[in-house]
Design a protein around this nucleic acid. Structure first.
Lengths: 150, 150
DNA sequence: GGCATAAATGGAAAATACTTTCACTACGTG
DNA sequence: CACGTAGTGAAAGTATTTTCCATTTATGCC
């Protein structure tokens, strides 16, 4: 959003990666996009900058850009494939990074925050999705154990 | 989480759906799970309750259960197919439901909320993911226009 | 500026994942 | 307990992602 192609390119090279034409095309496409794009879309639009940009390259470059924190995967509802029983009402999840256990948080205390978002962005807010990751008590206990036995 | 098989089954029937063996197997699997499962996993585990549970049925049943709000899709990072440039630092997205335009919210005001989550759940919070959906100013303007021209 | 070289590329094809179709089955009402 | 319909699984169809490898290209070095 705030980054220019130059800034991105510099960061890219500074971390020891080559700035090839295909990669430049992908960055340009992402810079020009007003919404998250799928790999196939990135290839399609990217070909206006780099004639024969391959889909494989798009996948590889996205992976790299994610590692470098220059790009992020955005949650797109249709394409999320984990399912869990929901408790009635509005809830959020806290997912353990180690064992993937899920705790649901029943209350939702984001009302004020969402109001301010609406005001700042001009959007009419219709919903939100919050997921919190962490390490559950059990896994932390196990980790302590592991490190003492080593 | 708090629901029993009986409760789920009752809600299911009350809303005019048949409670078949495959569906029962899927509900049982979800009840027994401690983390979100993919459709393929649900099929695999569900087969211990219903010998030849088909993947198609899993997809259809999940869709139905989502409609009934008995199950929810949980964001699983690997399977999200939208990519967007990330601005440096921590941001959240507001995505327009109509045109998919994305606005990034730069500040993050969830600190206090996350602290209370940590306290309540016993998790060490390592990160969070918030996405807000809404309708952007432009799309709302278009909608008003549409309804007056009709 | 040209050269060496290691990284990066694109196409083909394999491997996965997801959807749709359709003839058959079984739920549960009466 | 028979019947009608919602629900089913297998298989085919489509889309997505990964792997492999011969070829190309960016970049540091002269």
């Amino acid at each position: 959003m705030t980054s220019s192609l130059d800034t991105l390119a510099r960061q890219f090279r500074e971390r020891g990666h080559k700035l090839t034409q295909p990669r430049r095309a992908i960055l340009r496409t992402l810079l020009a996009a007003s919404r998250p794009l799928s790999p196939a879309e990135i290839q399609e639009y990217g070909q206006s900058y780099c004639q024969d940009l391959g889909l494989v390259t798009v996948y590889r470059t996205l992976e790299l850009l994610e590692d470098l924190d220059l790009v992020r995967a955005v949650h797109v509802a249709q394409n999320c494939h984990g399912y869990a029983l929901s408790t009635p009402g509005h809830t959020h999840h806290v997912v353990c990074e180690r064992c993937h256990a899920v705790v649901e948080i029943v209350g939702c205390e984001l009302g004020d925050f969402l109001d301010s978002v609406a005001e700042r962005t001009g959007y009419a807010i219709t919903g939100h999705w919050l997921e919190i990751s962490g390490i559950c008590a059990e896994c932390r206990a196990n980790e302590r154990q592991d490190s003492t036995t080593l």
